[in-house]
């Protein structure tokens, strides 16, 4: 019993530490002070300013241009993450099927290559791609950022799909072909439904990493004026203060993610419960 209380309070303590910055952001999303830690009274003004695009007459709110570029940064972040993870899943799933059917030595070589982007720190990936685009005289922008995100996301898709392939019975695919399905039909109707869980977790992982990326985007977006949330915040930090509207934005994002995760967990929890009874 004593052990249990001790264990629980340790977990609680670490969680409090982990969540302190997020709670701090959430608390100060209800006050308009320029910097956090300076309480100037409870108000929803920052939320109003965020949702009206800075048009509301808010003391301490930012200009419409500033809020506009923040919202654009959020849209860019989501769009890049969506496109990059969609491509990563396609590329990575095909690659996993290919790798699974390779001979041992070929397999080892491709898997080694697949490991490189996962072991490289972000800055190395960023710098190396920066040099590539300089070397090939490709002007940096949306396309280079998306290509770079695909580069560091796809290995995780491969890693998530490969185990599903080894769980699968290869004869089912062969049977579909024998029964007259074309390879693309067999892929769509037989293979993909079985690989789906791996593809989905690959997608979620890719999406998360793309959202959170800073270093690679920083080096591959160039001076095109393309901002994601990370590069926007970095530019803000260099100028010495965050746009106050970031606080309500982060609070909303966090609550959304929390709700989604709890719902997903509740559903799987219920499923396992009904499966057990």
């Amino acid at each position: 019993m004593m052990k249990k209380i001790l264990a629980k309070s340790y977990l609680g303590f670490v969680l409090v530490l982990l969540y302190a910055p997020i709670v701090f952001i959430a608390i100060y999303s209800f006050t308009t002070a320029k910097s956090m830690g300076n309480w100037t009274g409870f108000t929803f003004d920052l939320y109003k300013s965020l949702f009206t695009g800075g048009a509301a007459e808010v003391v301490g709110g930012s200009s419409p241009e500033k809020v506009g570029s923040l919202v654009t940064a959020l849209e860019n972040t989501l769009l890049i993450a969506l496109i990059a993870s969609a491509f990563s899943v396609m590329l990575g799933t095909l690659a996993a099927i290919g790798i699974y059917n390779m001979k041992t030595r070929q397999k080892a070589a491709v898997q080694f290559m697949n490991n490189i982007p996962m072991l490289n720190p972000d800055i190395i990936t960023g710098v190396s791609l920066f040099l590539l685009f300089v070397f090939l005289h490709i002007s940096k922008g949306y396309v280079t950022v998306i290509l770079s995100h695909i580069t560091f996301c796809t290995p995780y898709v491969v890693l998530n799909v490969l185990p599903k392939l080894s769980q699968m019975n290869p004869n089912i695919y062969e049977a579909a072909l024998d029964l007259g399905a074309t390879p693309s039909q067999a892929l769509r109707k037989v293979m993909i439904p079985q690989l789906w869980p791996g593809m989905l977790s690959g997608f979620i992982l890719s999406f998360t990493m793309s959202l959170d990326d800073f270093a690679v985007t920083y080096f591959t977006a160039g001076s095109s004026g393309l901002d994601t949330l990370s590069t926007y915040i970095y530019a803000d930090a260099r100028k010495g203060g965050l746009t106050p509207e970031l606080r309500p934005m982060m609070t909303i994002i966090f609550l959304l993610i929390l709700v989604v995760l709890l719902l997903v967990n509740y559903r799987t929890f219920k499923k396992t419960k009904t499966a057990n009874s």
Partner: peptide, 8 residues
Amino acid sequence: PMWINALM
């Protein structure tokens, strides 16, 4: 917490 932007 990892889902909240690291820089933020």
